[in-house]
Simulated scan of single mutants.
Amino acid sequence: MKRRIAGAALFGLGLLSLIVAAALAWVIVPAQKQVPYDLQPPDVVVEASNATFAQATTLPDGEVEVAVQQGGLRNQTGIKPDYQAAADLTGDLAGKTLIWNVYQATDRVEDGSPVNRAESRIALDRVSGAAVPWSGQCHNDMKEVKTENVGCIPGNVNFTGQLYLFPFDTEKKTYQYWDSGLGAALPMGFAAEEEYNGLPTYRFQQDVPSQTMPMDAELVEGLLGFLAPGAHSGSVSYQASRTIWVEPQTGAIIGYQEKQHRELVPDVGTPVVLFDASFQYDEKTKAAVLAEAEHGRNLLNMLGLYVPIGLAVLGLILVVLGVVVARRKPRGEEHQPAHAAEPEPTAVPHA
């Protein structure tokens, strides 16, 4: 009886291990593949050497001057999650959406003088990492003259596609990736599987052909006045290319390269280069995003692969052991005959 009880206990424990293994691999871990609300992404810095760029400066008399400069550029992006705004979301966005405040600063490497400042508010899906429709989306390029800044006005932009994250279990396909110059998401296609910075990655490529860039007419007029004073009208042409390396399990972008070229095209005279630069992550950023991707990847592998495999092996062993123990007979019963043999009668000799 005791052996049957022990066997049943081992069998039940093994069955439980198999159930937990299956739940981890196919239910629990897949359900947890979403960006946590408390994720604080590291600051991202991209740098470009020998860049050409138009820079606005304030002269001693208070006047603003725009001139084309050359030198190194450093762009820093900082992200601050807005937990309260995410918690206040209702409807289809509730429980599924991140709200991020994004701050960007572009400075000259040589002297640290500011070239551009911008701020945004964006809603991102916690699983796909893509932007989702939200009335609070906004973007503001801060002006040189602070009194002209109106802040980030909700609803003045419609972010779509991937921006800072790719989906968990990124696929080898074409995604829509946000282009800030055109204010639209454009196709970014899978190019190859590559090892980057020690991790297996998917490399994606986006090429934006030369086209007219949508810009405020007053801003174009101002640029013409500084850089093409003989022109009466004009436009800005834009082209870009981006290469990114994505760790596919987590969707983390661990490598980034971008080339941008913008020209002021006046109705008379030759075009003026407003911006020409090739950016890539600096070494500190590469190390930070690599560490974050490795941590996420190791956690997913441990909980979604190694632990379930271990539990499954243990469960099978316990199930088999339980069956064996339950069916095995006690040692005494194994050697005892079914019935005792009757002694043969012995003849008694007659005297």
Rank of each mutant, 00 (worst) to 15 (best):
S210H: 00
A192I: 04
G189Q: 14
F226Y: 14
V208W: 07
A240M: 08
V236R: 03
I244M: 12
Y238R: 04
L182M: 09
A228D: 10
W245Q: 14
D207S: 14
Y202R: 13
G230F: 11
A185P: 01
S180H: 09
P209T: 06
L219F: 14
A217N: 09
E195A: 12
Y202Q: 09
A192Y: 00
G181R: 05
E221N: 15
A192V: 00
V236P: 02
L224W: 03
A228P: 05
E193F: 04
L199P: 10
D207M: 12
L182C: 04
Y202T: 05
T243L: 09
E218D: 14
G234S: 01
P200H: 11
T201G: 03
L199K: 11
S241W: 08
H232V: 08
E193A: 05
P200M: 05
A191K: 15
V208T: 14
F204R: 12
A231E: 12
D179G: 01
Q211Y: 02
Q239K: 10
A217W: 04
A184V: 11
G183K: 02
P200V: 06
Y238S: 02
G230H: 07
Q211S: 07
V220F: 05
A231K: 11
T243P: 06
G198H: 11
P214M: 00
G181S: 01
